[in-house]
Simulated assay, not measured.
Amino acid sequence: MKKVIITSLEELRVELSKLIENNELTSSLSENVQYETTKIYISEMTAAVDNLIKSVGKIEQGAMTENLAFSLIASISEIETTNNILMTNVKNNNVQSATPWYKNLWSKLKSHIKPAIKNISSALWACICKMIIPTGWKIGGELSTGVLGLAKCNIEISFG
């Protein structure tokens, strides 16, 4: 399962890099600004994909921890959110009257990138759920009539 996730992430990374290659923008300033903004979003998504590849590699080596699980969740959320922002940006810039590059970008985001992210996210969640099952917990507390008469309690959950 982890190999499949890594392969899917690497394919997503290639698709993202293709999006900013071979642009066919005209020299108009607004389109260049749109292109630069798009490049920033795609770069952010690519960096998050790289982080996910490294993190999934750590899982494959048996280094699953709660912190790593939460890092995976944060990374996939970042990718999903950035993609949604990018899609909204492209759509708001009127795809119908845009350059061929922008129309191609919209098409790829909608038909390839978004479904790929959804599939990776589902596989990643399935993997995380199997690995962070609580194995035990401890509850501790203390009652005292201190200065304010407040109780103190601790909860600790261990994941396997």
Rank of each mutant, 00 (worst) to 15 (best):
M131H: 13
N22M: 12
L52A: 08
E10V: 14
I120H: 15
N51M: 07
E10K: 14
I128E: 06
A151Y: 03
E142R: 15
S75C: 03
L105V: 13
N154E: 12
E11A: 11
A63R: 14
S75D: 09
T46K: 01
A74K: 09
K114Y: 13
K152H: 04
T46M: 00
S17E: 12
S144R: 12
E44N: 11
N89Q: 02
N84H: 09
S30H: 12
S158C: 06
V33N: 14
M45W: 11
S27W: 01
L12V: 07
N93Q: 07
E15R: 03
A123H: 02
S144E: 11
L150M: 12
S55M: 03
N89V: 00
P134V: 02
P115S: 01
S122Q: 13
Q96E: 07
A47D: 05
Q34P: 03
N93D: 09
E36I: 09
T145N: 12
N32L: 14
E44V: 10
S158D: 12
S55L: 00
K39S: 15
C153K: 06
K114R: 12
I73Y: 13
G140N: 08
S144Q: 13
K130Y: 13
M64H: 02
I128H: 08
T82V: 03
H112Y: 07
A63Q: 15
I6Y: 00
T65M: 08
V14N: 08
V95C: 00
L105Q: 15
S17Q: 10
N93H: 11
A98N: 10
G160I: 02
F159M: 08
